[in-house]
Amino acid sequence: MSSNQGHLASTHADAVVALALLKKALASPPSIGAPPTVTHLCKKPRKQKSGNKISASVFRPHILVCDRLRLWSAPHSDSFHLSALKQLPLNDILQLFGVMLVSIETKTRENYGAGLLHFHQYCDSRHIPEARRMPASDFLLASFIASWAGKVAATTAQNWLAGLHFWHNLHGAPWFGHSILHSASAGLRNLVPDSLKRPRRPPVTLEHMHALFHGLDLSNTFDVSVFAVACTAFWSCCRLGELIVVSSNIFDPSRHVTRSAPFARCSPSDGTKYSVLHIPWMKTSHVEGADAILSNLDNIMNAFTAVDHHLAANTDVPSNAPFAYETADGKWATMTKPWFLA
């Protein structure tokens, strides 16, 4: 073997080792933006349902749906990763991928992961080679969307395409979804059946709030907590997800209101008292959060009094707990969205 051949062999071996190290590192959850207090509802991949299976492939391991963007790949991924390793150290690449992933919420990653599943199921059914799935052609993307015309809502198709686009970006693949895809997407919007169209929800009014007030027992700690959440959401125009958690298993103090959240009572010279409750994370401002102003209005529904009553009635709730209430056995429980809406 000549010296030149030996050098090429050594270079190839180094590249293989570097690529293996990168794949191993990518298999671990990113350390960026994953607070240790957050526990995901789904801790292990679910068993594939009948009629919703996918062909086995080394490019698509059986993993949590929220991890598909990161761990599902294509032949293009290896060439992209090798190119990246020639330009940057391994830690820099992992940092980049981690930062890109935290640009979207976990729930969004799940929605995107569902779109990836449907895309690959379509490709499996049409025997599309792995190499043609990324980068996917304009024609392939349009054909995939057209296959769902009359079966899904336009927003669902848009989410799937957004997920495919992000998947391409994460793996360094160009996005070819242009004129043909745009036409197919427009056609899909026109073919959505009425059964998939959700009517606009009516707004919550003061009459609704008064009905809630008269239907609650404000000597009950649970009802007191419900009333405080409802008044705060109503008068401060908050989303429920910005005040309470979906499940007691999912709690992150950097995103959810806790008992110890910054809370100040103010008494200005004009006599109208108000409180300021800091919400750590909002859908619009993200980590900057926002201050909810709870004014002491001349109304039985005012959030100022409702929150004060909640804090006084639920004094034994720990300071690091989310919006919660005391239970009959002397313990406390998290106010979750399902319980609030029950």
Rank of each mutant, 00 (worst) to 15 (best):
M1R: 00
S2V: 05
L8Q: 12
A9M: 05
T11G: 08
D14W: 11
L21C: 13
L21T: 09
K24T: 13
S28A: 15
S28R: 11
P30V: 07
I32S: 11
P35L: 12
T37P: 03
V38E: 12
L41H: 09
R46K: 14
K47P: 09
A56T: 13
S57E: 06
F59V: 04
R60F: 02
R60M: 04
L64K: 03
L64D: 00
L64P: 05
D67L: 04
R70K: 08
W72R: 02
W72I: 04
A74N: 03
D78E: 15
A84T: 07
N91A: 15
I104P: 04
T106Q: 10
E110G: 09
A114V: 11
G115I: 04
L116A: 03
Y122N: 00
R132Y: 09
R133Q: 08
G150W: 06
Q158Y: 06
L164T: 01
H171E: 04
A173I: 04
P174D: 10
F176C: 10
L181I: 08
S183A: 15
A186I: 14
L191N: 15
L196Q: 10
R201S: 13
R201K: 14
V204D: 07
V204S: 09
L206G: 11
H208N: 13
F213V: 10
D217H: 10
D217C: 10
N220Q: 11
T221P: 07
V226E: 00
T232D: 06
F234R: 05
W235D: 02
G241F: 04
S247K: 05
F263Y: 14
C266G: 00
Y274M: 06
Y274V: 03
S275Y: 01
H278Y: 15
V287W: 13
G289S: 05
D291P: 08
N296Y: 06
N296G: 04
F304K: 05
V307S: 07
A313D: 02
N314F: 02
T315Q: 12
P318E: 07
N320I: 12
P322V: 05
A324S: 14
D329F: 05
T334G: 03
T334S: 06
T336M: 02
L341M: 13
